[in-house]
């Protein structure tokens, strides 16, 4: 929320937000899709390696986060929209909720896991 205070600009006439500024091209979308597909393939392969514990989980989580960021950033235009004036408001709304959800529920799971 603090972010948006510095970003605040009611005096500037806002523009409609997505007609002029750059969105990815068709080619870029395909590239992202191929990367996503490759990561998914690696994930599946990794899960068949017979690893256990952190060796299994940590790389999978990392790949999951990368996929998440690519979809949110490119397909949902977050990384493009956020370059607009005040575009960071999107981060505020969505990012705050993401962070909140992750933190809160990690604490809950930790409380159950360790019972301390």
């Amino acid at each position: 929320m603090t972010d948006s205070i510095t970003l605040d600009s009611t005096d500037t006439h806002g523009h409609s937000d997505h007609d002029d500024h750059a969105h990815p091209t068709e080619k870029q979308y395909w590239i992202v899709f191929v990367i996503l597909a490759v990561i998914t393939a690696v994930e599946i392969a990794w899960s068949y390696m017979g690893l256990e514990g952190p060796a299994l989980v940590v790389p999978l989580i990392i790949m999951m986060v990368v996929k998440f960021l690519m979809i949110a950033g490119v397909f949902m235009h977050l990384s493009f929209d956020s370059k607009m004036p005040n575009g960071r408001t999107f981060y505020l709304c969505f990012g705050a909720a993401m962070v909140l959800a992750i933190l809160v529920f990690l604490v809950v799971l930790a409380a159950f896991e360790f019972q301390i």
Binding site: S4, I5, T10, D11, T89
Partner: peptide, 12 residues
């Protein structure tokens, strides 16, 4: 609140 403030009505 975020989008419909009168001109000059900054957050602060």
């Amino acid at each position: 609140v975020l989008n419909m403030r009168a001109p000059g009505m900054t957050l602060m």
